[in-house]
Amino acid sequence: MPTEIPPPRNWFDQGGSAYARFRPEYPPQLAAYLASVAPERRLAVDVGCGNGQLTQLLAPHFERVIGLDPSADQIANAIPGARIEYQCAPAEQLPLADGSASLVTAAQAAHWFDLPAFYGEVRRIARPGAVLALVSYGVLRLEPLLDARFQTFYWDEIGPYWPPERRLVDSGYATIDFPFSEFEYPALEIRVEWNLSEFLGYLTTWSAVRSAREVGREDLLLAFANDCAAAWGDPDRRRPVSWPINMRIGRVEPAGARPAAQARP
């Protein structure tokens, strides 16, 4: 009897729990920095908080942290913690009192907002000297052996399947209107060490990968996965993966005040 050759592994079949397992987490240094530039530590508001990744990092630094998201499902599954409150609310209608917040953050979310309406709400709830930070993380980086292949995949192969808003994230929101007095921030990054299955599992959380599969471009994904597997070597070997953290960060003028001149980082 001839030996049956098993089909090649589909690295992109990771199951429905992939998002929670593989999304990168912000480092504690980010929350510590944001707290250090806030005028006081009474209240931080994390808008578009999702499952509360940044919200829970802010909690040790503030008396209260409120996480807001328009998705009831996200709020129902948000990370609980002392001094944290979650509410279901859109960025354009913040359920907070005037002049109440010392820090307002939006992590990997601002590209979905109606920004003029959101900025109006930020000015309304801001305390004197309050800080607004639009946080995002850029395109991941790998070791040189793997990074060149990944960059081709990201920009040229899977790139057309990203929604248009993704370009705003990739640029660190550099092109959006930000009518606040900006200041410089320290270099920060997310760092993990992943094996091959974890790295490719992270890619399954991308909307672009789901879109490519829906239109029958499984071949594109499998070709990339096979190239990665060949370059990775032992699939259980843990290799460094990093993402640069980008921000548009500035002081918020009170509602009705004229914005100060901007100084880009």
Rank of each mutant, 00 (worst) to 15 (best):
Q14P: 09
G16A: 15
A20E: 08
R23Q: 15
P27H: 08
P28D: 12
L30H: 09
A38S: 11
P39R: 12
R42I: 10
L43G: 01
L43N: 01
A44H: 04
V45D: 00
V47G: 02
C49Y: 08
C49I: 07
N51A: 12
N51L: 12
G52R: 07
Q53S: 15
L54G: 08
T55E: 01
T55N: 02
L57G: 09
L57M: 15
L58H: 00
F62L: 00
R64Y: 04
V65L: 03
V65T: 05
I66W: 01
I66L: 06
I66E: 00
I66V: 13
G67F: 03
P70E: 01
S71N: 05
D73S: 08
Q74F: 12
I75D: 00
I75A: 04
P80W: 00
G81S: 07
R83S: 09
Q87K: 11
Q87G: 03
Q87I: 01
P90M: 01
L94R: 06
L94Q: 03
L96C: 12
G99N: 08
G99H: 03
S100A: 13
A101S: 02
V104P: 09
V104M: 07
T105W: 01
A106C: 14
A110P: 13
H111G: 10
H111L: 14
F113Q: 13
D114N: 14
D114S: 13
F118T: 14
G120H: 12
I125V: 14
R127V: 11
R127Q: 13
R127N: 08
P128D: 07
G129C: 06
V131L: 05
L132R: 01
A133R: 04
V135H: 04
V135G: 00
Y137S: 11
L140S: 10
L142T: 06
L145E: 14
L146W: 05
D147V: 10
R149A: 15
